[in-house]
Simulated assay, not measured.
Amino acid sequence: MNTKRILIIGGPGTGKSTLITALEEKGHVCFHEISREVTAAAQKKGIEQLFLTQPLLFSELLLKGRIQQFEDAENLNTAYAFYDRGIPDIAAYMDYSGDEYPAIFTDVCKDYVYDKTFILAPWREIYQQDNERYESFKQAQIIQQYLKTTYEKHNYDLIDVPFGTVEERVDFILQTLNNEE
């Protein structure tokens, strides 16, 4: 079976992880965001925000993990695999931070291409900061623009997910996928 890789992107606090969890509860294969794991591991070593203090190392760890997630879907026997963020997110965040980075971060985007990309807009009513999410809502809106620019540069057609309950958003994604088959 040729598993389609379905990407869910958006700035911080847009509800991506909640949607991934809801899709997983419905029996879909889902790959969770790994930046929280990388951040938490660094915090255990005394580095409060690895992305801020060593952005290139943080991004290299993300790239390695996201490539692994992409490859893990190769032998699945399911129609869809859902991802909480994708490989192009890394370049978008590096562009946002203004840090220079090697070409590998954009070159891999040509080799690892997702089949569909759904984008969630910043939503003030659900936005929360926490230990791993340091960005303000205003920063989340700016990051959103970097994500759009990066994905469009890599020829992705972004499908806007409307605001609504978790169930409404999940239904929108699944109905959109079913309508295209």
Rank of each mutant, 00 (worst) to 15 (best):
L158H: 06
Y114N: 14
K110V: 00
E100G: 15
E132N: 09
M94V: 02
G98Q: 03
G164M: 12
D107Y: 12
L147T: 00
K116R: 15
D107N: 13
P88R: 12
D89G: 07
C109V: 03
N131P: 04
V108Y: 15
V161I: 14
S136Y: 00
L120T: 03
Y83Q: 10
E167N: 13
K138R: 14
A92N: 11
P162M: 08
D107F: 07
Q145T: 13
D84Q: 08
Y127P: 00
E125Y: 00
I126G: 04
D130T: 10
I159T: 15
F82L: 11
Y114T: 02
Y146F: 14
G164P: 10
L120W: 11
Y151R: 09
P162A: 04
L158R: 11
D130C: 07
D89E: 15
D84I: 04
Q139D: 11
Y96W: 15
E100F: 02
T117C: 14
I119H: 10
P102A: 08
G86E: 12
I142Q: 05
A92Y: 03
I119S: 11
Q145I: 05
D95T: 04
D111P: 01
R124F: 08
D95R: 10
Y156T: 04
I143C: 01
D84P: 06
I87W: 09
K148A: 01
Q139G: 03
C109P: 12
V113F: 11
I87D: 11
I159W: 03
E167C: 02
I87Y: 12
F105H: 14
P162L: 04
Q144A: 08
Q139C: 00
E135Q: 15
L120N: 13
A91P: 05
K116V: 07
V161A: 08
R133I: 02
A92R: 13
Y134A: 06
R133Q: 14
E152G: 00
F82I: 03
Y134T: 12
